[in-house]
Design a protein around this nucleic acid. Structure first.
Lengths: 193, 193
DNA sequence: CGCGGGTTTGATGATGCTCAAGCCCGGTGG
DNA sequence: CCACCGGGCTTGAGCATCATCAAACCCGCG
């Protein structure tokens, strides 16, 4: 199970891992299974773990006063999940994270991360790369605020075609910040061409 | 001029700076002045420098096919500026960055950053902190996509009250992804209460 | 067969955009 | 000292986009 993670780390760093480091990683990352719909984090809790998704799909969302869910992130195999704000600042989270499919995760506490993983050059390198990628991805998403519903959808199809296979349309719609109905109409119009 | 930056670094790290490191920093960060409206980066160019703003205010924006500007970021003293995507991936930028007020900057190339600054523990620590902050801030902004114009403005007033002093309303509106007129109406209604 | 989750379709309405005109204010030049 | 100009802000009228509400449909599953 840790193999997937090790492969991932090697792929995203140039420094090789020593035997010792591999032990630390196996020690620090605790496997955890979630069934569909089970919470990884609930609003109001502090996010104690960051998780690497070995298998499955998850979603992070906010629930507004009317009870409507707004998807903040959708994620799947080989992605990291956590509420970064809560995880790093130790503040109560405003979001929920749950499993959309049955999941296998590798979880790690902030303390372990700082104390033990940060010593490992390969991990450090990987982390920086992740931060870069994350910054770039969210930058793009922010910049899509000014686009129309249609353009936003087109961009998503470009950027994350996988999403369409894994998540139902109403989650995609929520992720895009539009209503399910609008997305449905959009698609049927696009299909005509 | 470099003093501001050194203070900033010390404030955001626990490791002290050695004499030697200070020399490196002074060597690597090249001062640059921009006059109001002058470009720091133009669409299509690769973003060669990241800059620390010692004085002044800047904006990063996209220009759509109709020629309308969409603010992606507004920034001022003690903030960092660059198009991160272009800077790290060396790809042509989709954005413009220019000075909204006369500016004094300290600029640094990606190569210098990786080769020389990354050796410095204090800088490393600071960079991680910046990445955390940046991730948290953009996460919040993304999550505001699902809010109404009024709520988005309220949140901005909370989060960046400084903006209101430094930037004209039409830039704020663009930053929020709403029209100047809507913001104007919003404010006059809010004032009534 | 019936149920639940998801998608579609239609009718109606609100939110926020566009276009257009007017205003305010500080700066410049006659 | 006043006229004029430009940049920014305001206000109003009409309109487009998209949300909401409601009903029907589709399909896999117990």
């Amino acid at each position: 199970m840790h193999e997937t993670l090790l492969t991932y780390i090697r792929k995203h760093s140039t420094t090789p891992l020593t035997e010792n480091e591999i032990e630390v990683i196996k020690d620090v990352f605790i496997p955890k299974k979630l069934r569909k719909r089970q919470f990884f984090l609930q609003e109001g809790e502090v996010c104690k773990y960051a998780a690497f998704i070995v298998k499955g799909a998850m979603r992070q969302y906010r629930v507004d006063d009317k009870g409507v869910e707004h998807m903040l992130r959708l994620s799947m195999e080989n992605w990291w999940v956590s509420d970064r704000e809560s995880y790093t600042m130790l503040t109560p989270s405003r979001y929920n994270i749950d499993a959309w499919e049955d999941c296998e995760l590798l979880t790690c506490t902030r303390a372990d991360f700082l104390d033990r993983l940060n010593q490992i050059p390969a991990i450090n390198e990987m982390t920086k790369k992740m931060d870069d990628n994350f910054a770039i991805a969210t930058q793009r998403r922010v910049s899509s605020i000014s686009l129309s519903a249609e353009e936003r959808y087109a961009e998503l199809v470009q950027t994350y075609p996988e999403f369409l296979q894994r998540f139902p349309q109403h989650l995609i719609a929520s992720y895009l910040g539009i209503s399910r109905e609008t997305l449905s109409r959009l698609r049927s119009q696009a299909a005509k061409k």
